[in-house]
Simulated assay, not measured.
Amino acid sequence: MNTRWMARSALAFVCCMAANAWADRPATQTERQAMGFDDPAQLVMVRDLPFPADSDTRAPDGAGLGDEWQTRIGTAFQGRTGAFNFGGQAPSIACTSGTERFATATFDLPAGAAIKYVDMFAYDNSSSEEMLVFLLSVCQGTGGADPPVSTILANSTTSGTPGDTVVTLNLSSAPVIVDRYTCRYMVRVNMASPGGTCVGGSIFLDKVRMQYTP
């Protein structure tokens, strides 16, 4: 066994990990409101990802070598509170009325998986509101007494695109490594931003899929 080669490889791995150790920062009040964190005592962090590499490694059909998918249809998403009123035609959902405009679904990924892309398939034909999509983690150490920490890992918006649209969170430059023992990973969609007014018949969430390398 070539121990010198192993030592060099281990050093390269450590250097690579250090280079991709992105620091988290506290979320601003605007970011907290957009994400639906109303409790000021809840610790919310933001991970500012680097811009994706110029040469995206995603294959034309969307799948990378050895990658797998996990999908949640619109009706799998739940509101934070009972004030969220579901509408639309399954498998899609819409925020039709009420004060709750946030819908969340949990993704159950294998330990050590690398999350690379999150795609939201939606319909946005509102002239006043947009859809925001967030990937977030909620982490708490095993047996820890401290409250869980929520971290916004990536986010994007429909940006006024009329009709059917796909919004992609590209994490390929710094994939999120799943720690299923201390963290949960969720996608939350703000279905009425920035005004907070649900516009039934104009905004629908069809499905969200996650691409990851096991």
Rank of each mutant, 00 (worst) to 15 (best):
M1R: 13
N2M: 01
W5A: 15
A7E: 09
R8M: 13
R8G: 09
S9E: 13
L11K: 09
F13G: 11
F13N: 14
V14S: 14
A18Q: 15
A18D: 12
A21Y: 05
A21M: 03
A21E: 04
A23K: 11
A23E: 12
D24V: 15
R25A: 15
A27D: 04
T28L: 08
T30E: 10
T30N: 08
R32S: 11
Q33P: 09
Q33S: 10
A34G: 11
M35N: 04
F37T: 14
F37W: 07
D38T: 12
Q42L: 10
Q42K: 14
Q42E: 10
L43C: 10
L43S: 11
L43F: 12
V44M: 07
V44A: 12
V46G: 00
R47T: 10
D48F: 13
L49G: 06
P50C: 06
A53I: 14
D54P: 10
A59M: 01
A59C: 10
A59N: 01
P60N: 08
G62W: 05
A63Y: 09
G66V: 13
E68C: 13
W69L: 15
W69G: 03
W69N: 05
T71A: 11
G74L: 11
G74D: 04
T75K: 10
A76M: 09
F77Y: 03
F77Q: 02
Q78I: 14
G79W: 11
R80L: 13
G82P: 08
G82I: 06
A83P: 11
F84D: 03
G87L: 08
G87H: 00
G87D: 06
G88W: 04
G88L: 10
P91S: 05
A94H: 07
A94N: 05
A94K: 04
A94R: 04
C95G: 07
C95D: 00
T96R: 01
T96N: 04
G98A: 00
G98N: 00
T99E: 09
E100Q: 03
A103I: 06
D108N: 13
D108A: 13
D108P: 02
P110K: 06
A114P: 00
A114L: 08
I115T: 08
V118C: 07
Y123M: 14
S128E: 12
S128W: 11
E130C: 12
L132Y: 00
L136P: 02
L136T: 14
C139D: 06
T142V: 15
G144L: 05
A145K: 02
D146R: 07
P147D: 01
V149T: 07
V149Y: 08
A154H: 03
N155E: 14
S156E: 14
T158G: 04
T158W: 01
T161C: 12
T161D: 12
G163R: 02
G163K: 00
D164Q: 14
V166A: 03
V167S: 05
V167T: 02
L171S: 00
S172D: 11
S172E: 13
P175F: 12
I177F: 08
D179H: 00
R184A: 12
R188H: 04
M191A: 08
M191Q: 10
S193I: 07
S193L: 03
G195C: 01
T197G: 11
V199H: 14
G201E: 02
D206P: 00
K207G: 09
R209A: 15
M210I: 08
M210E: 05
M210D: 06
Y212I: 03
Y212C: 07
P214W: 11
